[in-house]
Amino acid sequence: MPLGSGETLRLGEKLKPFRERVKELSGEDVGLCYQCGACSSGCPLTDEMDLLPSTVMRMVQLGVEEVLDSKTIWICSSCFTCQVRCPRGIDVANVMEALRQLVLRRKYDRVSIDLLPPEELRELPQIALVSCQRKLTG
């Protein structure tokens, strides 16, 4: 069945709440994305990602909640290269943050600072620890 057929649309309708929640939380109109891939080509961290940023955008458009299981959302460091380059004016970093927040708000912490050995804590600057806590713990 071709894309955009009744079947696909119905699927989209069913999964709409997730897409709407991401839109609301990120403030970005994910529907604007036309999958050019500029975000993915400029992203310095794709080597570590399981999904390309543009794939994440597509999954959000389709309302596929499984995108929350992806490693990508935790790898994004909010460097905003995608924000500068997106021809559709989408701040992809905001979408990534919304996805992280959806997970973090369910009593989930991506990392635990308790597990860092003292020698690392002695060495790491506050700026690294504070940003890490803010990005990866709820």
Binding site: I113, L121, R122, E123, Q126, L129, V130, C132, T137
Partner: peptide, 15 residues
């Protein structure tokens, strides 16, 4: 009394 002594013992202050 090093600058990181608090972070070392109480890393949660970074939160």
């Amino acid at each position: 009394p090093t600058p990181n002594v608090f972070v070392e013992h109480f890393p949660e202050i970074t939160r």
